[in-house]
Simulated assay, not measured.
Amino acid sequence: MADWAESRGAQFRQSRDARGFQIEQAKAAPGGALRIEWAPSQRSYIEGNELRMRCELGLHPDLQMMVLARSLMERLEKAVFEAYTDTLKTRVDTDTPEEMRWLVMFAKLKNYPHKLVKERFGAVAINQEVVSAWLENSLSDLLIQASQDLLPEERPFVLMVLRGNVYLRVAMEEPTLTEIQGLVKLLETACREAQRVNARLADGGPWPTTTSVAWQSQPPLGELPGR
């Protein structure tokens, strides 16, 4: 893993408790700083360890999109519904992570570019047009490919565009270089496609810039240590 990080011009550091590691790359292929971290999960819906990644791209702050494993989406929707219907609560708590709140707040994609993408993944965004555009090219192709081996049906997986960055989180009890390389490729593809959508927004494309109504109390996908 350290050799692979060095080959990318990145720095590899093992955590002090030897329970994880971080890889920092000042400038990754999509053009922004990349951080990869394998460590104990920061989300209740992932047991054990997880891999989380962030690529800083400086995208439009109103560009908010999410793709996640459909099995996870259904589980989180149930949890959010139960939180809403709890007689002691009037709304989802502000410490609930974005990936759960967005399922209630944002539009769900109805027309997927491929049947298999719809079967294995769910998607939401500030509106359906932006997330449809995100998925219309190579990102869908890579998600289909990943669903065959890298992302089995019951593996929790989240891919988000938020606060100008692209985030990926996936359950990973033990890290393997092959899996991490595949997930980095998926993240980099998501970054390039997000940059394409962002450029269309910046050029006054077919979607209005939408002021986010998302609560900002919790960092996206669990803010990575050291940031």
Rank of each mutant, 00 (worst) to 15 (best):
A29K: 10
L183F: 08
V213H: 12
M160W: 01
G20D: 00
S41Y: 02
R196V: 00
Q148F: 12
L51S: 01
S138H: 10
A5W: 01
A202F: 01
D141A: 11
K118E: 12
L162G: 02
G226D: 02
I23V: 15
A123E: 02
V130R: 05
G9C: 04
S140F: 00
E24C: 10
T211Y: 11
A29E: 14
F106Y: 13
R19D: 07
W38Q: 05
V166N: 01
E179N: 15
K108I: 00
T176M: 07
K27Q: 15
L221W: 06
W102G: 11
F106W: 08
M65C: 08
L150R: 07
Q42D: 09
E129T: 13
V130G: 02
D203R: 04
E6M: 07
D95E: 13
M1L: 06
L88Q: 14
A28P: 00
D95Y: 10
E188Q: 08
M172N: 05
L186Q: 06
E98H: 12
K108E: 06
P156V: 02
R120D: 03
W134L: 09
E153G: 04
I36K: 10
M66H: 08
P206G: 05
L177I: 15
M66Y: 06
R16H: 05
A125R: 09
S140T: 13
L59D: 02
N127I: 06
R91E: 11
L116F: 10
L109F: 03
W102H: 08
A107R: 15
T178D: 14
A125E: 04
P206R: 13
A2N: 15
T85D: 10
A28W: 02
N137L: 09
E47F: 04
T94M: 08
G48T: 05
R19L: 15
S147F: 06
L187E: 14
R70K: 15
G58D: 03
I126R: 04
G226V: 03
K115Y: 12
E98W: 06
R19I: 09
E74M: 13
A69R: 15
R200Y: 00
P219Y: 13
S44Q: 06
S138T: 13
G205C: 07
A29R: 11
G226P: 06
Q148A: 14
M100I: 12
L142D: 12
E56A: 02
E223Y: 10
R169W: 00
L68A: 11
E154R: 13
V197M: 09
E99W: 04
W215M: 01
T94K: 11
A125N: 04
S212D: 04
E50N: 02
G58H: 03
L162P: 00
G32Y: 03
A2T: 15
M1Q: 06
E24R: 15
P219V: 14
D62K: 12
H114I: 07
R75H: 14
N49T: 09
N111T: 11
E47L: 09
L143M: 11
R120S: 01
S217Q: 11
G222Y: 08
M73K: 14
P30T: 07
S41G: 06
P30K: 10
D149P: 00
